[in-house]
Design a protein around this nucleic acid. Structure first.
Lengths: 170, 170
DNA sequence: CAATGATACTTGACATCTCAAGTATCTCGA
DNA sequence: TCGAGATACTTGAGATGTCAAGTATCATTG
């Protein structure tokens, strides 16, 4: 399809459209990489702190954190969902924590397939110490970010999370 | 230091300050969890896509992506830095890719301790196919996010990244 | 040139993680 | 009640990931 070389012809418009699409792709990719980079940095620091201060790991801390808010205990499958992790994975982490006496598996009285995992008293105590430190670390890591910006990030990331969740049903 | 019980005394102010601090802690923690959740969701989808479409993994893709922009090859240590990952880890991933002929280790002529890792022609070809799909996935995942919000996220995350990098020198 | 220390990479021990296959138990219908 | 299918969890193989220790090479100093 030949185009005239008239001023303000379709040529610039076409280029603009293509440029816009290309830019948007670029923006999405760069945004993803930046998101990943930030998360990795923070996660890495939290891991190191957990290791050096408490000789434990992030997934163990995460599992205990889930249990701390569920005094009645959680099923393995519930832990799996909340930790966004495979069931087989939960088995291993729970094994380790149980071996150290921080957690117990109790059989469910109504369904013998189910384990209710609970924090022991010792686990509770230990988690509280870790949680206090953990909160301090996170607050420090985000310390230089103005509250207004934090809220903006919360909002935008909330939207993103919604969008992502919506992709399943669609 | 005793305080008078006068109306509008320091008591409410103190409570406000504590409340503000507490809220800010809460905001930082929630922000961190939300950031982690978003990243995990996206990362998980990209992993699954790489697995089902190309029978490969994210770290392999990541390593090849680094090499694609460095025709002269990269040292193991450079790969380690850019992938934000341990040296020992790079060794394993490179081993796998080399075994499949997607990557080669060439000895550096000036320093025999160094390997220069490069994409093979086959690796190049395969990476380009994957990169095109990968970009599509990411664009789709962020598709519902308005460009304006994407740019806002870029800005805020950029600041966060700066802050985090600054914590080292301080 | 030879000893010393720094660098570049590999290795091995462990802890996550995913996936697929296996076992135990429950549920529901004929 | 009995059997098929669903559910809850475990297991084992394979890929990451960290860390610390080991090997080879370089670089510097005497």
């Amino acid at each position: 399809m030949p185009r005239e070389k008239t001023a303000l012809s379709a040529v610039p418009a076409t280029i603009d459209a293509e440029t816009r699409v290309h830019d948007d792709h670029h923006v999405s990719l760069r945004l993803w990489l930046r998101l990943l980079s930030c998360t990795n940095q923070i996660e890495s620091r939290v891991r190191q702190n957990l290791q050096s201060s408490f000789d434990t790991t992030l997934p163990r801390f995460d599992l205990m954190a889930q249990l701390e808010r569920a005094p009645q205990g959680l099923k393995m499958s519930e832990l799996s969902q909340r930790m966004m992790v495979t069931g087989g994975n939960v088995t291993g982490i729970t094994d380790g924590l149980e071996k150290e006496g921080l957690v117990v598996r109790e059989v469910d009285s109504t369904d013998r397939r189910v384990y209710r995992v609970k924090l022991t008293a010792e686990g509770e105590r230990q988690f509280r110490r870790m949680a206090a430190e953990h909160e301090r670390w996170v607050v420090d890591l985000f310390g230089a970010v103005p509250t207004k910006h934090k809220k903006q990030l919360m909002d935008r990331l909330g939207e993103l999370k919604e969008h992502l969740a919506g992709l399943d049903g669609a």
